[in-house]
């Protein structure tokens, strides 16, 4: 389970962007979260990926409560959630070649020996050809770079995926290709998915369950369990 309970979060404690949001995903489930831009759904996605510490509220990941965020989260917990962001240009270190970009998490977690095997599996899965892998971000298109960012999110085999507006900047064909790659990965591993976006046609087609932002943040009485 990935459970977010009564989350209030933001960048200024006086004016939180997310107020009392509650959301839970069953293992292997795909949930789409719809909301207008600027509503705070990206912040909630960052909380779910353990990248932003909420002001109040609890996050439970596979049964164990999350006590630290970012570097303070245990590595095993952090890497259990893979993330893909909206803008591939900002999500890729401009100095790294696509190969290094994709395999950087393996290096960071001291699993270099897996690099050749994972690369050989992931590159075709996201549709990247060998000649593209040798290039740097400014030498590829947005769509190609987002494919690499997806591969990076999958390289540690996360049990959960958080896709924050993953396809908002991309054309129809690349969108379909990336969604297919995510779904192939989920079919093979049983990973759960939280897809955040504003395109209801896309999310309804993609996810088993779609929630609107208002359904998630409605203040409720704490339900007695």
């Amino acid at each position: 389970m990935l459970e977010l309970r009564d989350i209030t979060a933001g960048y200024d404690p006086a004016a939180p962007v997310v107020r009392h949001a509650t959301l839970s995903l069953a293992p292997g489930e795909s949930v789409g979260l719809l909301g207008p831009s600027g509503c705070g759904k990206s912040t909630l996605a960052r909380v779910a990926a353990l990248l932003h510490r909420p002001d109040t509220g609890t996050v439970t990941l596979d049964g164990s409560p999350v006590r630290g965020w970012r570097h303070r989260a245990p590595r095993a917990q952090r890497t259990a959630v893979g993330v893909v962001f909206q803008q591939p240009r900002l999500s890729a270190d401009p100095r790294l070649r696509l190969t290094e970009l994709i395999t950087e998490p393996l290096r960071a977690t001291h699993r270099r020996d897996e690099i050749p095997r994972r690369l050989a599996e992931l590159a075709p899965a996201v549709g990247l050809t060998p000649d593209l892998l040798d290039r740097r971000p400014h030498e590829v298109s947005d769509g190609q770079l987002q494919r690499a960012c997806l591969a990076r999110a999958l390289v540690l085999r996360p049990r959960w995926l958080v896709c924050d507006e993953m396809t908002a900047m991309l054309d129809a064909s690349t969108t379909a290709a990336l969604v297919a790659a995510v779904e192939d990965y989920r079919a093979a591993t049983g990973a759960g998915l939280l897809a955040v976006g504003h395109d209801h046609v896309l999310l309804q087609r993609w996810c088993e369950r779609t929630l609107h932002w208002n359904d998630v943040t409605r203040t409720r009485d704490p339900a007695p369990l």
């Binding site: 549709g127 050809t129 298109s141 769509g143 190609q144 054309d171 129809a172 064909s173 690349t174 969108t175 379909a176 290709a177 969604v179 297919a180 395109d199 046609v201 896309l202 309804q204 087609r205 993609w206």
Partner: peptide, 19 residues
């Protein structure tokens, strides 16, 4: 045709390969 078929309210199937 392929571009239109890739839309989520149509076949949602990507064109093979890349430009």
């Amino acid at each position: 045709r392929g571009l239109l078929e890739a839309l989520p309210d149509r076949a949602f199937a990507p064109l093979p390969g890349m430009p």
